[in-house]
Amino acid sequence: MIRLIDDNNPKAFSLLKQLYPHSGNAFIIGITGSPGVGKSTLIDALIFEFRKLDLKIAVIAVDPTSPFSGGAILGDRLRMQRHASDEKVFIRSMASRGQKGGLSRATKDAAIVLSAMGYEIIIIETVGAGQAEFDIASVAHSIGIVTIPGTGDGIQAVKAGILEIGDIFIVNKNDRPDAQAAVLELKMMLSMRNSNTLGQILNQAPRDKFEICPQKGCSTWAPRVLKTIAQNGTGVKELADTFLSHFDFMKKNNILDLKKKELERIYFNSLLKDLAMGKIELFMQESMDFKDALNQIEAGLVDPITAAEHVVNHLMVTRNLKVQDN
């Protein structure tokens, strides 16, 4: 089923429609951070903790697709081997297939399937790119950002943006020197997020860019900073507990419902875009206009900018579509 989604098979759509009403009960956790900070190993340890509570867990691990060959090596699983024979743990690797922002388009759809299958916790691991993975905020309910001490890069990786989407910050490889410094620095940066005016707004509405505002008077979640050593499991129990308490917090304060509605809207928007763009692209590429334009560009008769504008305008005119242009 996830395979159909991944391959963008038309059959997937009708199946998704059937499954959608049954999804929505899972708690979706996003894990992001630079390559090599230990996301996979940490998730492996998290699975272990969640399994102790007898929760059913699914993991979607996204790895990059080569922009040149379209192929991919999916190796996150390698670090989650010990759960391979546990039937209540489902691990699926996905290739990013050209999507930026660290998530494959199919990830959201896959999460719907897994949720409908009754997995209580879904962990999504993004491509380890680091600084531009905001997409995760449009899928996950709670976001963990993993960093490591000692490189200065640990802070580098949680600069603007990523700092704003995190609910829980994890300093992994805490046995390294400088771990305390990294924790302090993170806490300091997070406290700035809370104290100035901008930070105040962010604190009121952790996803202000998606306009999620908890009702007035309700308390807000202060981002936590935790220390772990994923390799031997140190601190991972606290991390699992913190994720669960964030979930409870959101439930109690009515934030979860708002967030879910917001995520639903984002999903709807992206579906619209995908469906419309797919159809329009096909349509345009078959049109004479498009072929003419391509020839003209190749012949150096027209620049690509003018040509693109012309093709789109012409399409709008012939199809009698009118949009107010700014």
Binding site: T65, G71, R77, A95
Partner: peptide, 9 residues
């Protein structure tokens, strides 16, 4: 991978 396949290692 270089041949365009998705490889789970």
């Amino acid at each position: 991978r270089d041949a365009g396949m998705e490889v789970i290692y």
